[in-house]
Design a protein around this nucleic acid. Structure first.
Lengths: 172, 172
DNA sequence: GAGTATATTTGGCATATGCCGAATATTCTG
DNA sequence: CAGAATATTCGGCATATGCCAAATATACTC
């Protein structure tokens, strides 16, 4: 028999699976995150495999990915031997901040490096076309530099203060 | 022979391909966007297939995807018959805004709907566990509601005003 | 430190994806 | 409205991905 509580959780877990998919993670990882999100306590790999229906190896690699994105924490419990336990990070804004600070920031820097290098090359190049290319590289660089500041500000601020500030900034 | 200008452009196009990959688009789409980004004028499918080395059918589907993300515009030229031309949107902040306003906003709403529904179900459910579930659903909902306001504010503001405001907000 | 309980990695199978060339559909011209 | 030029869709091949079960590695206990 399936309780109301189960139905309620399942509804949210489905949505999380869908989101995972949208953000480029596997749906199964979304389900596993959801399972942990509602767990009464941290779960072992076996528990999680049991509850989710995925093989233990699948759960293991999922945990390692979800950990990279700070969606899940790994705990060792005293007296539990080697057994590991996993717990969802329930503050998704914190997760987003970590993601911005690490992944997005890195990606922005890679792009800025490429743009700097291209700028140098094009600065020494002859011709109308090079001129135009240079201007376009610079335009892109301006955007990425703004983006970098934005990302770094977002990744520092707590969500409620941020929305307050932004509401004041765009009052309509 | 390969000119300096070509080398400079290629450097940036590679980085764009990489970014595309990171953001869940195919690398080839990143290359095609880059090719358009530096083109002196809008390009036809044939031109684009020619310059990029991809088959025309590949370019066609790429254009339709890139258009969905507002990365590319499709133009018809008078006197050119059915032939279509494609042009890169060079303002990437505008692209991001469109993306936030459409895709992210939609995804947030789907999640909020799921959370509302789960809240209703759990509100009528009995037991300690349901109580805890309900609290967790509400926590998630608070985050998503903040996120919704943030996204909608971001998707309205010009990038430079935004960074100014945020710099003032987090001054260090 | 050997033994055991557990986690992680590996290899493989089934399905999905990226890309192509050919087939079809669409849009403009006379 | 027929014909020509072009765009889009389809079918298929090669590679990549998701998941599993078995093999290996690792970390505790006594």
């Amino acid at each position: 028999m399936t309780t109301d509580a189960e139905r309620g959780r399942e509804r949210v877990i489905d949505a999380l699976a869908r989101s995972a998919d949208i953000y480029g993670l596997k749906q199964s990882y979304g389900r596993l995150y959801g399972t942990l999100y509602f767990a009464e306590e941290p779960l072992s790999l076996d528990e999680l495999a049991e509850r989710s229906g995925y093989a233990k190896s699948t759960v293991s690699t999922a945990m390692s990915t979800l950990r990279r994105f700070h969606l899940v924490r790994r705990l060792s419990m005293p007296g539990e031997g080697k057994r590991a336990f996993f717990e969802a990070e329930r503050d998704l804004w914190r997760v987003s901040r970590e993601f911005l600070a690490q992944e997005v920031s890195r990606e922005v820097n890679v792009m800025v490096d490429a743009l700097d290098e291209a700028e140098t090359i094009l600065d020494g190049a002859e011709g109308e076309r090079a001129e135009q290319d240079l201007e376009r590289v610079r335009q892109l660089k301006r955007t990425y530099e703004h983006a970098d500041r934005l990302v770094s500000a977002l990744s520092r601020a707590p969500l409620d203060r941020l929305t307050d500030a932004i509401d004041r900034f765009t009052p309509e």
